[in-house]
Design a binder for these strands. Structure first.
Lengths: 227, 227
DNA sequence: TATTCAGACTTGACACTGTTTAGATCGCGG
DNA sequence: CCGCGATCTAAACAGTGTCAAGTCTGAATA
């Protein structure tokens, strides 16, 4: 019940009083605070351990406060997912750049980056692929998600000798599916703990990224003229 | 409080009165009823839409009744997952048998069976790989899960010319990881709706199984001496 | 046959969740 | 200077899982 407030009627300065500039609303940067708290919470307890009330609690506001910034729970999680897709796309595009002019290397680098991102950002990655947890019709989210997907498709096109405007051949589409599947599947197996037993017996905790991933990617799908 | 009973003092036969034999408890086969209701519910609303109270409601018992048979929610879901792994293993082993003496065909058939099971039993499959939803220490569950996994490993061994007692080579383990990843990833992408857009433009709703899967599996990992 | 007794189930409560409603408070622009 | 809209709180509602107690029942025991 209302213990805290009625007991100590002092402390008028609710806001931090420092840097009175660049504080768009009269109660601080709640929006960003909620997002940060959400990312921390799903990292701690998983996507399903998330609770809107807990996030509000950590941000020091009432349970209903987030509604004004995000509408509802899905609105908040949509924004967190959007940020995740942004960073995910950045990682893939940077890996693509590392591949230089070698299409096969571009694909290799992206595959490694895909799984690495998933394992380094387990909570975000899990959320990103849980469509039931956020609003699927969110436009801004679709944009960054497509951007990440197109990075992969671009490398597939290059490795198949297709121009960006060419229509995908059946074979190229199959290669795209196979490549996406293998990295996505590996990420899910790793995040699901499916490889933990093996990792325990075959090297330390980071055996998954350092050992298993290269081992698996050695068998990754390759373009039609198999070398 | 007891509205129902005091209002209508009739209907003494609470149990079905038919087949008075093989009814171990005095109120019927609640255990199986709860499991059936659970499978129906997660099929309707997804794994996260599950609710213990709703299941109890559908089985016509009080919210606390399931506790006596399964302990808690995780106990119930563990049993449902166990049954899922049982059928999953059956499907994989049957596919393995269809492969006959051709190790590559055994692998092919298992891959198709893996994804097919996932798409035909989306709710069960989703639950099976959501370790947070059930009790990981459940022994009976581990047994059937390992059985399914070993079906895949067996075919990998055969295709690599390894005896069941031989230690896995690094290359064989990489092939196992890559194969598992590609089918698991494809299943997750399909169940996550990630392929729905493409399926809509490239054929009907079952384009995923009929068209995409063969296309992707054409690029599946193959044993070292690439043909 | 009568009585005990453990298993199966209900009742009622507790703490928690997300969301809605109405109201309080603050700061900016007229 | 003052209203007004953006921001947040308080209280309530329906829903959740789980627990402690109590009720009922069928079968084995004395």
């Amino acid at each position: 019940m209302p213990a805290k407030k009625s007991v100590s009627p002092r402390k008028p300065p609710k806001r931090k009083a420092a840097t009175p500039v660049a504080r768009p609303y009269h109660h601080g940067d709640l929006r960003e605070k909620l997002i940060a708290a959400t990312e921390a919470l799903i990292l701690e307890r998983g996507v399903d351990g998330f609770s809107l009330r807990e996030v509000a609690r950590r941000a020091g506001v009432s349970p209903a406060a987030p509604a004004h910034h995000f509408g509802d729970t899905k609105g908040l999680l949509s924004d967190v997912a959007r940020l995740g897709f942004k960073d995910f796309g950045d990682a893939l595009l940077e890996a693509d750049r590392r591949g230089g002019n070698d299409p096969a290397k571009r694909l290799d680098e992206q595959g490694i980056a895909y799984v690495t991102f998933a394992l380094k950002n387990p909570a975000r990655f899990a959320l990103m692929f849980r469509h039931d947890k956020y609003d699927a019709t969110n436009e801004a989210l679709h944009v960054v998600a497509d951007r990440a997907f197109n990075a992969l498709e671009g490398a597939i096109r290059a490795v198949q000798g297709l121009a960006p405007t060419d229509e995908m051949t059946e074979d190229a589409y199959g290669l795209l599916l196979a490549t996406w599947s293998i990295v996505h599947g590996f990420a899910h197996l790793a995040l699901g703990g499916e490889l933990d037993d093996a990792a325990r017996t075959r090297g330390g905790k980071d055996a998954i990224l350092k050992s298993f991933l290269p081992l698996a990617l050695k068998h990754r799908p390759i373009p039609s003229p198999r070398k």
